[in-house]
Design a protein around this nucleic acid. Structure first.
Lengths: 217, 217
DNA sequence: TTATAAAAGAACTAAAGTAGAACATTTGTA
DNA sequence: TACAAATGTTCTACTTTAGTTCTTTTATAA
């Protein structure tokens, strides 16, 4: 019935109209179908008009209308869809990278969202996650090294002994072992050269709990 | 079907009528669509009338009626499609997990391929990779902890100072810092409780070089 | 190779969009 | 009613985007 390219184009046009409400331009179709020249799109569209799959309002730009879509998919398309399924199974999650965090001297908490990193799904189960780049040596005895990527699960609370991202006095974010005592909160580094920090509970806001580490050599 | 501007205007008019009960003026449309002249709005409206999306009561101000809007896909379908797109872009590599490796007492090298793990593409550039589960504490000073997943790049050779998977006497695989001297190969643990091991070059086969670490808490 | 078809590319034509001004109509209210 | 303010229409001139047509290139199979 239709060639793979024709089918792909037809479905793309149908999709675009349903999704964006407006008909795609030839340029958009080019990149969607994977053709580098507008004349190719032109030929495909003429074919689709001939076979009465689409209609065109003459002398108008972006004026295509899908009349019908075929029941059967070309074989290549089916193959491709299988590949997508496999890719989906192996896909990783995309989480924002919130700049660097000092694991030694605390630095300012970073509020902007610029980069994202992809992490294996195993590290991000349920909840919201973000990543921080470790800077400094204060957690080295917990196997967290300078330059590591820390995968953090958003949380406002933590259990004693967990490694947390803590915001101190609203302007310093730091990765430390959390311990809440009756009257104070201790943030413990994992490096004997660093001292345990003691704060009033009101000074410390938990920003998340360490969920994973990714290191690249 | 519609051009982007036409669509934007149509939706704005439809929305305004539904929200405010009355048709917006050209001035309002101007700022909504981002056009600095009324004539542009006029042209767009004439087009929309031609294509029978709106109707106009002649000789009346603010007297437009929306006849129809392009039909849409259900939201959940769009969401799903977006997820697929993102997942495809971020799909991660699937590499085999070759069982556990002793980072303390060496254990047998595992030859079978059973499980696989997905890792971010950042950790696996070019070449063949596999993953090993760390067991033991011998590399703890390099930030490699018991239970970590080591991402290994296949290689038969290594530079001094690199962390390698070494097979000793064909039956023990171990993760150590590699150092080749003129007459022997040293495999150095990163833990002062463990001793440096010295072997004849013929005893040691490099199986790969450490390329990354993934840890889950 | 040669014939063929698909694709790429360049050159061209047409449509869409932008902008401003002048003009015409409607609408509210003094 | 009459006027001013708000609203809508038309025109010209121009820029950008979109679509068409033709020639050249590339790939493929007889």
């Amino acid at each position: 019935m239709l060639t793979p390219k024709q089918y792909k184009l037809l479905m793309f046009i149908d999709n675009s109209i349903k999704e964006n409400g407006c008909c795609p331009s030839f340029e958009e179709m080019k990149s969607a179908v994977g053709i580098k020249s507008k004349s190719g799109i032109h030929a495909l569209i003429e074919e689709l008009i001939d076979r009465e799959f689409i209609r065109k309002i003459p002398h108008k730009a972006r004026a295509l209308e899908v009349l019908r879509t075929p029941r059967f998919k070309p074989k290549d398309i089916i193959e491709e869809e299988k590949k997508i399924k496999i890719a989906l199974q192996n896909s990783s999650a995309q989480i924002p990278l919130y700049g660097k965090i000092a694991a030694g001297t605390p630095i300012e908490a970073i509020a902007y969202e610029n980069e994202t990193v992809s992490v294996p799904f195993e590290l991000v189960n349920k909840g919201a996650f973000y990543a921080l780049r470790i800077e400094g040596e204060s957690m080295i005895e917990a196997g967290i090294m300078d330059g590591d990527l820390a995968i953090i699960k958003r949380s406002e609370t933590a259990e004693n002994g967990q490694i947390v991202v803590a915001l101190v006095d609203d302007n310093e974010a730091t990765l430390k072992v959390f311990e809440k005592k009756s009257d104070e909160i201790c943030l413990k580094p994992c490096n004997k050269d660093y001292k345990i920090q003691h704060y009033a509970p009101s000074q410390v806001k938990i920003q998340g709990i360490l969920n994973g580490i990714i290191r690249k050599y």
